[in-house]
């Protein structure tokens, strides 16, 4: 019971739970926007990477090599305290940019490998059947691409969420920062950090849950179409 009282005192009293929620909200927000930016940018980079025009391909290769091969914390620090130090961008914006850039490199590679796994003949067949370029992509490539990408993409999302735990370096109070502050104030780091880990775990499983739901939805769709 003493343990429960301790937990109650640390995590519930005086609005501590609300502070935890705000921290988690910051983490989720940065993750979501970075993911959006990273995915869109990643698709563009992948397009360049597969372009027939060689310089574009090389530029994309360099971009991917640089961003995939360097720790995102360094990029974040360089952007916030160096390149963009003179600007008035909010730390959150800079963090989204840094994590978005990093994610885009991963997404670009992910897209490229998924695309290379698709048989080329199908697109050609669709084209001979009179599909336009766009239609062939939309109805033949994209559905398969999404299915191929999904398992790795969800790991990317969860990884991204975990990487954002360093945004405390650029004056953002995210979940990790809240947990650290709480651990220091209560002098119970073991307990508080364990709970922090559990919250991250829950959020990760929420992501996996969303993906599982989308799988289920896809199956229903198919059943509805009678396929």
């Amino acid at each position: 019971m003493e343990f429960l009282e301790l937990c109650q005192r640390i995590f519930l009293q005086n609005g501590a739970w609300a502070t935890l929620l705000r921290g988690a909200e910051a983490t989720v927000q940065i993750t979501a926007w970075s993911l959006l930016l990273g995915t869109v940018l990643g698709a563009a980079v992948c397009f360049c990477r597969l372009a027939a025009f060689a310089p574009l391909d090389w530029a994309a290769r360099a971009y991917i090599a640089l961003l995939r091969g360097s720790p995102v914390l360094m990029l974040l620090m360089l952007l916030f305290y160096g390149v963009m130090a003179g600007t008035d961008f909010a730390p959150e914006t800079v963090a989204i940019l840094a994590f978005g850039l990093n994610t885009s490199a991963h997404v670009a590679e992910l897209l490229r490998t998924a695309l290379s796994a698709l048989p080329r003949g199908e697109v050609e067949a669709a084209r001979t059947l009179g599909f336009s370029r766009w239609q062939a992509f939309r109805y033949v490539t994209l559905p398969q691409l999404v299915r191929l990408m999904k398992p790795v993409y969800q790991s990317t999302v969860v990884n991204l969420m975990q990487w954002t735990s360093v945004v405390g370096y650029v004056t953002i109070t995210d979940l990790t920062r809240v947990i650290n502050n709480m651990a220091s104030r209560t002098m119970q780091p073991m307990l508080v950090i364990s709970v922090g880990m559990l919250i991250y775990l829950l959020m990760a499983y929420a992501v996996y849950g969303l993906f599982a739901l989308s799988d289920l939805w896809e199956k229903r769709q198919k059943a509805g179409e009678g396929l």
Binding site: Q13, N14, G15, A18, T19, V178, N180, N181, S184, R185
Partner: peptide
Amino acid sequence: VGVTGDLPPLDLVLPDG
């Protein structure tokens, strides 16, 4: 001001953040 919340009771963050 940049605070760390890492050195109570000199520098800390209250439950309300």
